[in-house]
Design a binder for these strands. Structure first.
Length: 218
DNA sequence: ACCCAGGTGGCCC
DNA sequence: GGGCCACATGGG
């Protein structure tokens, strides 16, 4: 990345506007793990319904999922898109974890890069999902890049919208404080901004994001 | 009737 | 390495 982007300033302005978010909607590591997969290419509303339904059916556990009937689980999470595919992936993932580690806790005890590599080896988990799990479920510092982050960095700072995931991630990780809460909250701020103000695609000059950026001085 | 959502894997060249 | 496509549901 050639130009200097004032990431700390960007963060402060977003935080002043939205308040401290420090967020992932989920209470347990298992819930966050599952939610990270369910939310791929889906609105969080659909995910919420699916998680709620899993709880109701006692299906939100590694034991249940690893020994489930895929069609049954697919029905339980039916409100999210790609439910049958995700049901299959989830089962395989938790079979892997249960047989090779015994628990999420043991899996998360791996060193960060080993954990990332292991997560990426599982079908259904790519860069963003792996990093969301590492950051929010395992509680290790890893900067999550998502579509909103790319879109906003492109819109506001003109970075290449097709920039590679790791490249943008490295840029953030090399230019902000190494602080877990900052990593969590910064990503949350991007999502909040993107969700509320950046719905149009492709992004046109009339996108409300422009107005907000002006308002908060980006 | 479109288009989109907090991606990913498979297949092609 | 990049360029497509399937995956499937709910909301605007």
């Amino acid at each position: 990345m050639t130009h200097d982007i004032p990431l700390e300033v960007l963060y402060k302005k977003l935080r002043n506007h939205f308040g401290f978010l420090d967020w992932w909607p989920g209470e347990t590591p298992t819930e966050i793990f599952v939610g990270a997969i369910l939310t791929q290419r889906n609105s969080w509303k659909n995910v919420e319904k699916a998680i709620k339904n899993m709880k109701k059916n006692n299906a939100l556990s590694i034991r249940y999922i690893s020994s489930c009937n895929e069609q049954v689980l697919a029905k339980i999470i039916k409100t999210v898109g790609f439910s049958s595919q995700k049901s299959r992936y989830l089962k395989q993932i938790f079979i892997d974890i249960l047989t090779n580690y015994g628990s999420l806790e043991n899996l998360f005890a791996l060193k960060k890069e080993a954990l990332r590599k292991k997560l990426l080896s599982m079908k259904g988990i790519g860069n963003e999902t792996a990093d969301s799990i590492i950051l929010y479920a395992a509680g290790k510092r890893k900067f999550v890049i998502d579509a909103y982050t790319k879109r906003i960095m492109h819109r506001v700072y003109g970075i290449d919208e097709n920039i590679k995931y790791e490249k943008l991630q490295d840029y953030f990780e090399n230019n902000i404080k190494k602080d877990l809460r900052l990593y969590k909250d910064f990503h949350a701020q991007f999502v909040e901004l993107g969700k509320n103000y950046c719905k149009t695609r492709p992004l046109c000059s009339a996108c409300p994001l422009n107005l907000v950026c002006r308002k908060i001085g980006l």
